[in-house]
Design a protein around this nucleic acid. Structure first.
Length: 521
RNA sequence: GGCACGGUAGCUCAGUUGGUUAGAGCACACGGCUCAUACCCGUGAUGUCGACAGUUCGAAUCUGUCCCGUGCUACCA
């Protein structure tokens, strides 16, 4: 059994979760469920990033402690993931004791190794922002763009991390491992960023930021984002510089770390350097996904177009997250930006989940009941037909796409196979065969369709676990089979269904079924 | 300003090393079917393949220049 360790970015709890956060978690959960089906020993980590001046300030404004703010928002992330059925193995918070303790140990070790050094530098400090500004962000008159005040030159002493020391090693690693950074069209960007990299500041004076992990043996300083946030991926597993846990030894290096494209630089460069400094292997793959826009415009608080996943489920009166999961993950090809619109959502899930896949099951089961009283007779089961082959190919293709974390492409392959089966139904017209009393032939065709349907349910499971479960139930098939055993666990002969058992696994949105459901409430 | 990537049907995109009538899906129109969730199947129209010039027997594909978009990065102030 192989191990498979997957991580998401941890979300900053200065606000509530929206569909941008959800996009990444759903993608990870789909990947996680697929690899779990493959009988891999999987570990799926997500969590929240909870330190820093923004949280400190938001909490102040609301008159609560930073910890209270973090507790509140971290819980709402967890609640959202529950709604979306994100089945993470572990949820780490950077305020967890287990995390803080190890971050301090990491910091200490880096100091001892000479990777961290204290350095004083002059910066432009804006009292309004309570932070340092870059010269290039100022207005033409040299004023802070937000407060229109001239920032003062302040000298601050901080710890710096010797990023430059690892520059060549990272470049070499990227070049030697084409699978390290995905999608590959991002590689040049990162190499370019590496060219003019400088050492980075990894601590702040307590006077400017107090909400953070204290630097060990230095009362003046607090650890700033990089070493704190990035190391969650190893502290969660129980990493310890002196005595790493068995869990860490087993699961690290991560097989894939999924992140947004905006933080690729920090992961590809900063994170790699930190790992090198600690003498730890780099993750096998870092995968940067694109953004979700709303009606083709960027989602932002100021535009007021931020959508929470729960709003969508509520709006469409969906009890299960399957449709939203499916739509989110198929809205953009690997690494590209996707878009959400209510109209697209409805069209896409109606077309793929209701019309194509759901209706296929429904029509074939109805025929089985009509012509054979819901029974598969032993003589219907024959190997080596075209649909069987097409199904086995689809299973292989989906697997290959998942090997490259191409979740959208894998979904397309499933739908394409369902299309092929629908075409097979039309070409063989079992209803005509029944009329002509070619019952043997008719039964064979129906069996092939239902068996194909079972394969679809297996492949669809990571995206739509509830719909998939429904399909298995209606087929009276076992859903707990491993991915690589799909082809060998064919539907058995016997009575599998009856009229009363058949119902749409995903009602078309705005259909009579959907409205009946609403009325019934 | 530099670098990278892209500009192909109404929309989203595919087009391998240049080779015959440029493709798919969605949407649209028409036809078929009637097992099914107004579903499924089939057929069809539509494109100066960003612009111009060049190489070639032949360019969506190669070269050059330019225009537009996106991303990264810089500089000036």
């Amino acid at each position: 059994m192989n191990k498979f360790y997957l991580t998401t970015a941890i979300d900053y709890v200065n606000g509530k979760p929206h569909i941008g956060h959800a996009y990444e978690k759903i993608m990870c959960d789909v990947i996680y469920r697929h690899f779990t089906q493959r009988d891999e020993d999987t570990y799926f980590l997500t969590g929240t990033d909870e330190h820093g001046v923004k949280i400190q300030k938001t909490a102040e404004k609301r008159g609560i402690t930073p910890k209270e703010l973090c507790d509140e928002n971290s819980s709402s992330f967890k609640a959202t993931w529950a709604d979306l059925e994100i089945g993470y193995t572990d949820f780490i918070r950077t305020t967890d004791e287990r995390h803080k303790v190890v971050v301090q140990k990491i910091f200490k070790k880096l100091v001892e190794n000479g990777d961290l050094y204290k350095h004083s530098y002059k910066g432009l400090y804006c009292a309004g922002c309570e932070s340092f500004l870059n010269a290039r962000d100022l207005t033409e008159d040299g004023l802070c763009p937000d407060h229109l005040k001239k920032p003062e030159e302040v000298t601050e002493e901080n710890y710096f991390f010797r990023l430059t020391k690892y520059k060549d090693a990272i470049i070499a690693h990227i070049k030697a491992h084409p699978e390290f950074l995905q999608p590959s069209f991002k590689v040049n960007e990162v190499l370019k960023q590496l060219e003019d990299i400088e050492d980075i500041s990894v601590s702040r004076n307590k006077n400017s930021v107090s909400w953070g992990i204290p630097v060990p043996d230095d009362d003046e300083q607090v650890i700033y984002v990089w070493i704190d946030a990035l190391s969650n991926y190893i502290t969660a597993l129980g990493y310890d510089p002196e005595n790493p846990s068995e869990t860490f030894k087993k699961y690290w290096p991560a097989d894939v770390q999924i992140i947004g494209k905006d933080i690729l630089k920090f992961h590809a460069i900063y994170w790699s350097a930190i790992l090198m400094a600690l003498g730890i292997e780099l993750p096998k793959t870092i995968c940067a996904h694109g953004w979700i826009t709303i009606d083709e415009t960027k989602m932002s608080k100021s535009l007021g177009n931020v959508i929470a996943p729960a709003d969508i489920l509520k709006n469409f009166e969906l009890e299960k997250p399957d449709a939203l999961r499916y739509y989110m993950v198929t809205s953009a090809p690997f690494g590209r930006d996707g878009n959400y619109s209510d109209e697209d959502f409805k069209e896409k899930v109606n077309a793929d989940l209701a019309n194509n896949i759901g209706n296929l099951l429904n029509r074939s089961l109805n025929m089985l009941v009509k012509y054979f009283d819901g029974e598969i007779k032993p003589e219907f089961i024959k190997a080596g037909n075209d649909i069987e082959k097409a199904g086995d190919e689809a299973i292989e293709n989906v697997k290959k796409f998942f090997d490259g974390y191409q979740v959208c492409e894998a979904a397309n392959a499933i739908v394409e196979f369902a299309n092929t089966v629908n075409k097979y139904v039309a070409d063989n017209a079992p209803w005509s065969l029944a009329k002509e009393e070619k019952m043997q032939e008719c039964g064979e065709v129906l069996y092939n369709i239902l068996e194909a349907m079972r394969k679809i349910a297996v492949m669809l499971y990571p995206y739509c676990p509830n719909i998939s479960k429904e399909i298995f139930e209606q087929l009276s098939a076992d859903m707990n089979i491993k991915y690589d055993e799909v082809a060998n666990n064919k539907l058995q002969a016997g009575k599998i269904t009856e009229k009363a058992k058949i119902h749409p696994v995903f009602p078309r949105m705005d259909s009579e079924f959907a409205t009946d459901k609403k009325k019934a409430k």
